[in-house]
């Protein structure tokens, strides 16, 4: 951080407290987040590569990754569709109860995941409020991949809505009007003009919901049933299982793979966001 000195004469540091606040920030971040995460890496790397690969290529581990990634992906796609509709309705229309609707979107952020988990599991079980009627139609939800995906839709929806909403609010009406005046139909205007404007925000929301879904634990472990045979175990559940058996080697090996996936997604989200801010600043 010695580089900050060089910048001083550019007049950036008139405001006091740079060294102090940056120092505290980096110290707390390192002690509470980075060093503990590094010890997961350290423990994973302490194993021989052969043992590491043996752990992460066990059938149940591979299946758990497939399940987590696939279900989170589908849930994030569903969330993009409904997230866009919700954000659109909340920004463009006025109707009674709008404020309540807007407030409720945030519910999955505030509701403890374990509470969401047991409630969804009960609701969609064959004796539950929604699971009952659905099972009569031959659709089993709780303890299947469908249930798992529903839980992930629940968890992910606010990420997408809250990513798209501000962009829609700020979007210049001129584009829409210009396209309309130039003769584009409403549908065409939407797909060609509006959708391309909000695409980066939608990707960000998608990435956040997807990342959250892959690591999700509390809200999915009850509804998924965690059956090895049915392949409904998620990655977090497998890590916890290894941890409970005191199998730290396996737990850290799987956690390392999960961490790499999370970081890749985080990187992707950041690239999208930086591009987005560059674009809006240039315009």
């Amino acid at each position: 951080m010695a580089k900050s000195r060089v910048k001083k004469y550019r007049g950036g540091h008139v405001i006091p407290g740079f060294g102090l606040t940056l120092g505290i920030t980096i110290a707390m971040l390192s002690l509470l987040i980075l060093i503990p995460l590094a010890s997961v890496l350290g423990n994973a790397f302490r194993q021989s590569p052969a043992a590491f690969f043996k752990t992460i290529t066990q059938p149940n581990v591979i299946h758990s990754f497939e399940t987590s990634i696939l279900c989170s992906f589908i849930a994030a796609v569903i969330n993009c569709v409904f997230g866009l509709i919700l954000a659109w309705v909340l920004v463009k229309y006025e109707f009674p109860g709008k404020r309540i609707l807007d407030g409720l979107i945030e519910l999955p952020f505030c509701l403890p995941t374990a509470v969401a988990g047991i409630t969804l599991s009960k609701m969609y079980s064959t004796t539950g409020e929604l699971g009952g009627p659905l099972s009569k139609l031959g659709i089993k939800v709780s303890y299947t991949h469908i249930g798992l995906t529903i839980a992930l839709v629940f968890i992910g929806i606010p990420f997408v809505v809250r990513a798209i909403q501000p962009v829609l609010e700020k979007m210049d009406k001129q584009y829409e009007e210009a396209a309309y005046i130039l003769g584009a139909s409403k549908t065409k205007t939407f797909f060609k003009v509006i959708l391309s404007e909000i695409k980066p925000a939608m990707l960000t929301g998608f990435g956040l919901a997807f990342a959250r879904g892959i690591g999700e634990y509390g809200s999915v472990i009850y509804i998924s049933g965690n059956s090895e045979k049915e392949r409904t175990q998620v990655v977090s559940y497998v890590i916890m299982q290894k941890l409970n058996y005191l199998d730290y080697e396996s737990a850290t090996a799987i956690a390392l793979v999960l961490l790499i996936i999370s970081f890749l997604l985080l990187f992707f989200i950041n690239v999208v966001q930086i591009r987005q801010s560059r674009r809006t600043n240039n315009v």
Partner: peptide, 18 residues
Amino acid sequence: DIPFSISPVVAGLSYVMT
């Protein structure tokens, strides 16, 4: 922002490993 996008189970594990 890391804690937002990593699994809470991994967060717990990281303190166990420390």
